[in-house]
Every structure is written in C-alpha cells, then in structure tokens.
Design a protein around this nucleic acid. Sequence first.
DNA 1: TTACTTTATGACTAGTCAGTCATATTTTAT
DNA 2: ATAAAATATGACTGACTAGTCATAAAGTAA
Lengths: 220, 220
Amino acid sequence: MPKITFTNLKEDKKKILVDAFLKEFATHTFDDASLTSVVKSLGIAKGSIYQYFDDKLDLFMYLINECTSTKMKYFKDLKREDCSDFWVFFRLLYSEGIKFDLENPLQSHFLHNLVSSLNSPSIKSLYDDLLNQSVAGFEKMIEHEIKLGLFRADLPIKTMGFLLYKSGVAIQEQMQVFGEINPKESIKNNTPVYQGKVDVLLKTVDDYIQLLKRAFDKEL
Amino acid sequence: MPKITFTNLKEDKKKILVDAFLKEFATHTFDDASLTSVVKSLGIAKGSIYQYFDDKLDLFMYLINECTSTKMKYFKDLKREDCSDFWVFFRLLYSEGIKFDLENPLQSHFLHNLVSSLNSPSIKSLYDDLLNQSVAGFEKMIEHEIKLGLFRADLPIKTMGFLLYKSGVAIQEQMQVFGEINPKESIKNNTPVYQGKVDVLLKTVDDYIQLLKRAFDKEL
DNA sequence: TTACTTTATGACTAGTCAGTCATATTTTAT
DNA sequence: ATAAAATATGACTGACTAGTCATAAAGTAA
C-alpha cells in the first residue's frame, strides 16, 4: 500500500508519476524495470519513491490494483444470465476489454504486459497468487455451466479451468506473435494496444471460441 | 558454438561442467542464472568459461542443443503413420518424453525449465525463434491431419497450431501449479521431473486429449 | 631438457540496481 | 513572523553481474 505522502499528492502530480511507472512496467519485466531510470527521466529524486511506497513491489502492486479496478468497471454490468450461453459471455469479456483498452491505453498496455512482467524470479509468489486467482475464477464459471448442464462433466474442473485460463492468455500472446499488434510501437505513440486491430482480435476470439466450445460443451 | 578448447576436454570433465550449468539454468532464468556462482561451486576459474564458450548465450545454446538432441533420439522411431489417429501419436510424444525424463533427469529438468528460463528480456529473440519453430511444427502436423480429412478445416491453421502448442506447454505448467511435481526438490535429489508421477502426467495428458480431440477433430 | 602449445587462473573493469538517510526545502497552521 | 509538519533531495552503501587479460601452469613433442 502506498504511504500517506503519496495519497496526499495532487492528482496531476500523481498521474505524472503513475503514468511514468506504468510505461516502465509495460515495457519491462518486474526485475528489468528500473526505478532509477524512471526518476531520471521524471527529473525527481530517487528518494521520493520511497516517500511514496515501501519498495518496488509495493509500487508494482499499487499499479496492478489501480489498473485491474479500472478494468473491472467495464465488466461490472456483464452478467452471465443475460447471455444465451457461456461463449457469448466470454466474447463480451473481450469486447468490453477492448473498450477499456481504447479509453485507457497506458493501463491496458500495463495489464497486457503483466503476463510477461510477472515472470521475474523475485516475484514468483505473486505470479503464483494471481495465476491461482484467475484459474479459480474460471473454475467457478465452469462449475456453474456444469450445474446448468451445458458443459461436460466427465473431466476434472481444475483441468478445464486451467486450459480455459491459458487459452485466454494465448489469444493475446498470439496477436503479438503473429505480428497483429506491436505494443512497443503503440506505447511510444500513446495508442491503444488494439488500435486498428479490433476486428482481428474479435475474429481471433471467435476462432478460439469455435475450438473451445467443442471442447467444453456437453455433447448433444 | 563451443570453442575447440571445450571440444578437446576429457569427457568426464566436460560432463561435470555441463551438469553444473544444466543445474543452474534448470533453476534460474537466463538472466538470473549466475556463471560466477557456478564456477565458485565448481572451484574453477571464471576465465575458464570463456576459454570454452564465447559468452553466456553461447553456453546456453550449447546446452539447448545437447538436450534437445538427446530427447529427439527418443522420438525418432515415432511415426504418425503407425498410429490410428493424431491423438495416439500425441500421447506417445509424452510417454516417450517420460522415458527421456527418467533416463536423463538433469537434461529433462533443464528442458522443463526452458519455457521459464527463456523469458529473460535479454534473449527475447531466441525465445521468439524457438516459439515460432515449435508452432510451425504443430502447424505441419495439423495440415497433415486436415489433408487426411481427420481435422476440421474451417479455422486458420496458424490459430490451431498456436493453441495446440500452448496446450502442450499448459500440461507441464499445470503439473507444477497443481503441485503434482516439485522440480526444485527433485533437482536437489537428482530425481526425474516426473518421478512417481508418471500416472498423474499421463492422466492429465489424456484429459487434455479429451478436450483437444473435440476441438480439433472433424465433426462426424 | 628444451621449446612450444594448450589450458587454467583470478584480480580487475565497468556496469547495473534497490534502497537509505541526513539534510534541505517547501507547505501549513498558529 | 514563527514554529512545526510534510516533502523532496541525491550522494552513498552494499551487492551483484558478464566479460577481460596478462600471467602462470600443465601438457606435448623434439
């Protein structure tokens, strides 16, 4: 948690700081991100960071919380019961995610890179925590679908949850590996991750749904 | 490529060196692995490494090549045409992989950790290369199955290849996340990755196949 | 034994970084 | 205007790294 000193800061100064750190962590892993280089480019003293935060990890977790809570707002009106099936809901997660991306490019880039930045050895336990949380979330959804008699019930829910989570991550990694998006460039230009690539992303999501639907749905 | 000096080394000395480095890279990412600490524990001079290899990356790639070529030997008799369908072949890749693991624990641990160790920023391009190679391999197999009329043909092969590759990686990550295997411990004890967990692994592979089969097979 | 080649050495360079702390400046309240 | 509280500073510590290089030792062939 940030210290009171940080909370007391004026909004515009806070934003300048947060944006600079978001950018750093959006382009580096946790270990590779250099607070030294950020304060240099901001023209503030190294010690200031430690007036605001306990340490590097405290700052990093603050950024995670800020961004996820912003993104969650885009999800709050999404309800499974308003959807004809799970996959409609699954797709809505992405289309709302795109809105978040277009309206909060920097935060979106940060979250987009989170999968990579979390790979640092020194924060392995944080990585594990977040992964377990995510997987648990998917497990719950799957359990619900099984209760509705819509998902197959012959396989371990944990396995289904894990694959579903990993597939979600694979979608965004695929966009990058296939060269559809270029985060490095778009961060430089302050443009969203999926700028001009919304259709490609949704097409990819639809393709994944075509695959996963068959894998998860109860056979008819 | 290693220098001639390394090639000239006696086999037993070579093995001691290679094993020590395998262990280091099996327990750290590329950037986090410390050559300094390895030479210290080996009791040899820092400079020796640079009589044997150009640099850290040269050494790392030598280890990758050694281990993959060992593992490939276990695959060389596997032929798709000897299998009734792709999934039998897919499963054989894992059961042969287990043989490799049991007979070459250290090399297996190294390859097992490769997915993680490659995540270092300084070798991003190597990561990309190996990922593209792997995905391309899966694409070819999928293309073949489509020609045989066994896999669905309504989705991009690249997407199918990517998901299949990521699923393969997910299997081993799931084993670790679910606590079935404990690489850190087994490296210490010089035991294979899947020591006593062969059945769990094959069960997991079978579960994944149950999911992927439906996703990829042509509907009947 | 001598001359030559191959191998081994480890102090050293030059660079990185997170985090500290005594001091100085600025802001606020009286 | 003064005292007190809140912020900002940046030189410094301690710890780590890959890679270098002149020198020393060991091995080999005559």
